[in-house]
């Protein structure tokens, strides 16, 4: 799926240090497929004992929806489980905005077509404020130009991304597609090094 510009409403989660155990608890890692993890995204925050949806958790609040998750600083810390990125993407998120991402999560997200956008703490707090005031606030992420915007509020900031990963997202290919496109180079290498 090619990723260019996306405009959506946001789900705010103003909590810092959200670790991968919160995103997807360990007991749900037993599956041998990548699908279905969205069902258990934030499981222990989302459901009260007895599998009753927790009315206080944002994913159960009808006011908020959208393909962008806006979360507190140091998002995705803890274990390296790729299942955390799978769960967010499977749930339907395409962008996560935070003021800092844990390293491994950041890369796992990029490998799964989920765009992590790092902004300053100030911008993050402003976003939380805007979304709280108006849950219909539309946020635009323009990957090509590396810009995050809330036009209605006159907010416009740039963000960084590795050029290779950017190309992957924009062209809708991943590392494997890229490697396959380099097959001739690989074959030539094998010839040369007598593998």
């Amino acid at each position: 799926m090619a990723f260019k510009t996306i405009t959506t409403t946001c789900v705010p989660l103003p909590v810092e240090n959200i670790d991968t155990d919160q995103i997807i608890p360990a007991r749900f890692l037993k599956a041998t497929s990548r699908e279905g993890f969205g069902e258990n995204l934030f499981r222990d925050w989302r459901y009260l004992p007895g599998d009753v949806p927790n009315p206080d958790f944002v994913l159960n609040n009808r006011k908020y929806s959208g393909e962008t998750l806006v979360a507190g600083k140091n998002f995705g810390c803890g274990s390296s489980r790729e299942h955390a990125a799978w769960a967010l993407a499977d749930y339907g998120f395409r962008v996560v905005v935070s003021s800092f991402f844990a390293d491994i999560f950041y890369n796992n997200a990029l490998n799964n077509n989920l765009l992590p956008v790092q902004v300053s703490e100030e911008v993050l707090q402003r976003l939380f404020g805007l979304i709280e005031n108006d849950p219909a606030t539309a946020l635009t992420v323009d990957l090509e130009n590396q810009v995050l915007e809330v036009p209605a509020a006159g907010l416009r900031v740039g963000f960084d991304i590795n050029p290779y990963k950017k190309a992957c997202l924009i062209n809708g290919y991943d590392d494997i597609d890229y490697i396959l496109s380099r097959r001739e180079a690989i074959a030539a290498y094998e010839q040369l090094s007598a593998h």
Partner: peptide, 14 residues
């Protein structure tokens, strides 16, 4: 390597 990379290692790795 992580699971995505296990899949990636057809013969090469980025």
């Amino acid at each position: 390597i992580g699971t995505s990379q296990v899949e990636q290692v057809l013969a090469t790795l980025l």
